[in-house]
Design a binder for these strands. Structure first.
Length: 621
RNA sequence: CGGGGCGUGGCUCAGCUUGGUAGAGCGUUGCGUUCGGGACGCAAAGGUCGGAGGUUCAAAUCCUCUCGCCCCGACCA
């Protein structure tokens, strides 16, 4: 397959080696004046002139953008919205995406992964065979369609099924493993609420990889290789990121970790500990259970009239001395499974919060949501605010968080409007609930490893790696022959990187008042050489000479020959954010130019002869 | 899904309450003057006011429906 890589200067043959013009000349625009004038051999390969690249910056920010990356990408003309959550990538932005994709390719290929291309349109049967059609349709996150014959299809939101069926057909023996295949292409998810530009779109570019091994040990190796590759990828992009333990969500499977780019606008909250290195998504995080006053020896249960007292805060007021830590709140959830729906009662210590992701997992449900007022009345026989374990109908399953295990003399509701119970003891005054970890960990609570207080940060999920195990291979009967000649399900891993989201998160992390500050590795160009007045011959000549020198030195450079006033040109390049910017202006005749490192905006004059060395130094070469 | 808001030249918006044949800034085009921080002057192009229906002598403006976009929320009892 043809590689979609960008900076081609390293790959194209040198002009001298191939006689230059005849081969490349046919592709060049006839207006490439620089060709004839240039003294630099590299410009034989047609200079990258910004005047020939579609660039359209906006002076004002678009009304619908909220976060810096969305505003700046739109203002710089890098993305243009086509529909809600659907974007067109401009030429410069596409260079960015391709550069990032190329970094991903290089690091994955280094670990022996194979690039393939899977179909976007997938048949329903494939999804039924893994049992996921139901869940994805229930969650409403999958675009589905019918062909003219009425067969149902979907636009791939992810590709476990296709890849599993593909590899299963190709690999019959343990001798053919390990296998790891990946692709980089568009994914489709009908997001409830697309937002933040490229951050949460309905169509987006993603790299997804799938590993196939004969056993768990093989999976561990594959997983660690991918983890290492991911670290190299995000490091090469110069991103500040962290790896956190994560919930495996709709994909399913055992262990999983997320790669988070730290940014205030991140949609995920993460908890971490500096001393132990523990880090987890709040959906998954645990902590040391905060202390609460002991209940003491069990006492007789009392029912007390509590008119209009419905919340924990109100109860604390109503019962002086009964702090929230001695209460157990009972929350009713409407739970959806594959074949049934039910209202479930969930108990939590009064000062703590329920984590719905953990709840969903504990119940092995498709979905949970808080019960409506009507559902609560029907399930408990009481108004909202008085639910409790005491006298709860046997119809309603009862779960409790671990924080309530062995707790005595609790304050709870008792399913009677206007009443609460004191000194409730689980198992004595009501059924014994089944205990699970259902608690949301919070910043300030003790790290589960070190006990030090957890800190909180926001993160943008740019990568996710899973150990799937045999979940899909078993469901889809994808097997190989093991050493003893027995059909055995593949042990799988799956790995994703947000290829369009990562550059957006790079902008989120690297910008200032003037615009974007691209990390060099994924900048549309590493360097721009701008002539402030393209009509002046000495400026044009010097700019093209510098362009040629930089190109020959392996710099991904472009030539800004656009006819704009100097002020506008400064502003425009700052907004677009090329990492190194060289301005050839009024001192061109004296061999002086201006040199700008975009990050930090350090700007000074520089002799033309020093430009190459300074650019290379600024780029860290 | 629930609630709210907004759709008027390419972009950002005014006009709508109190109906009377559509405006500004930026951008674009031409000419001239400029030429180091989004220059200036003059001239010009560009909008069936999201769409459909209704009320009216007359609708961007009032009413109904519809489509699109944005934001908030989804109740911890």
């Amino acid at each position: 397959m043809r590689r979609l890589d960008v900076p081609s200067h390293r790959r194209l043959p040198r002009p001298g080696a191939i006689g230059g013009r005849a081969i490349h000349g046919c592709r060049r625009r006839p207006t490439a004046l620089g060709f004839r004038r240039s003294r630099a051999a590299a410009t034989l390969l047609a200079p990258m002139r910004l005047s020939q690249i579609l660039i359209s910056t906006l002076r004002e920010e678009p009304a619908d953008a909220e976060i810096p990356s969305h505003k700046l990408l739109a203002r710089a003309g890098l993305i243009v919205k086509t529909a809600a959550g659907v974007y067109t990538y401009s030429p410069l932005m596409w260079r960015v995406v391709k550069k990032f994709a190329q970094i991903v390719r290089e690091e994955l290929d280094r670990e022996g992964a194979n690039e393939v291309m899977l179909p976007i349109i997938q048949p329903k049967e494939l999804w039924v065979s893994s049992g996921r059609w139901e869940r994805y349709v229930t969650d409403g996150i999958m675009f589905t369609l019918k062909d003219r014959k009425g067969s149902e299809m979907c636009l791939g939101p992810t590709h476990e099924e296709v890849m599993t069926s593909f590899v299963s057909a190709q690999v019959n023996s343990y001798k053919q493993m390990p296998v790891n295949c990946y692709q980089i292409q568009d994914k489709f998810r009908d997001e409830i609420r697309p937002r933040f530009g490229l951050m949460r779109g309905r169509e987006f570019v993603m790299m997804d990889a799938y590993s196939f091994d004969a056993d768990e040990a093989g999976l561990d190796v594959a997983y660690q290789k991918m983890r290492a590759a991911y670290c190299r990828i995000f490091e090469r992009c110069g991103l500040e990121y962290t790896v956190v333990q994560a919930d495996s969500g709709a994909i399913g499977g055992a262990g999983s970790e997320e790669f988070m780019v730290i940014a205030d606008s991140g949609e995920d909250a993460i908890l971490f500990c500096r001393s132990s290195g523990y880090a987890a998504n709040v959906e998954k995080a645990t902590s040391k259970l905060p202390d609460a006053p002991a209940g003491g020896e069990p006492e007789a249960m009392q029912k007390i009239a509590t008119p209009d007292v419905k919340t924990v805060a109100q109860l604390e007021q109503f019962f002086p001395g009964w702090v929230s830590g001695r209460m157990a709140k009972t929350v009713l959830y409407h739970v959806t499974w594959k074949n049934k729906e039910k209202v479930v009662a969930v108990m939590m210590r009064g000062d703590l919060e329920i984590n719905e992701v953990k709840l969903t997992n504990a119940l092995d449900a498709l979905k949970v949501r808080l019960a409506t007022e009507d559902e609560i009345k029907k399930a408990t026989g009481a108004d909202v605010g008085f639910a409790g374990p005491v006298g709860l109908s046997e119809e309603v399953p009862l779960l409790a968080d671990e924080s309530l295990r062995e707790r005595t003399n609790l304050l709870t509701g008792c399913n009677e409007t206007g009443f609460h119970c004191l000194n409730v003891n689980l198992g004595r005054d009501c059924r014994m609930p089944s205990f699970k970890d259902l608690r949301t960990a919070r910043a300030g609570e003790g790290c589960p490893v070190s006990g030090e207080p957890l800190e909180e940060a926001r993160g943008i999920e740019v990568g996710h790696i899973f150990k799937l195990g045999t979940k899909y291979s078993k469901a889809m009967s994808a097997t190989f022959m093991d050493q003893s000649g027995k059909p055995t399900p593949f042990v799988m891993g799956c790995y994703g990187i947000g290829v369009s989201r990562t550059p957006a998160s790079a902008v989120e992390q690297n910008h200032d008042m003037k615009g974007i500050v691209w990390p060099p590795a994924i900048a549309p160009f590493e360097c721009v050489v701008a002539m402030l007045d393209p009509k002046r011959d000495e400026q044009q000549a010097l700019a093209e000479q510098l362009y040629g020198e930089l190109k020959d030195a392996g710099v991904d450079v472009c030539l800004d020959d656009r006819p704009m006033s100097p002020g506008a040109k400064f502003k425009d390049n700052e907004l677009i954010g090329f990492p190194v910017q060289v301005f050839v202006g009024r001192k061109a005749a004296e061999g002086q130019v201006e040199f700008l490192v975009r990050k930090g905006m350090q700007k000074d004059e520089c002799a033309a002869g020093d430009v190459k060395a300074r650019v290379l130094a600024a780029l860290g070469r």
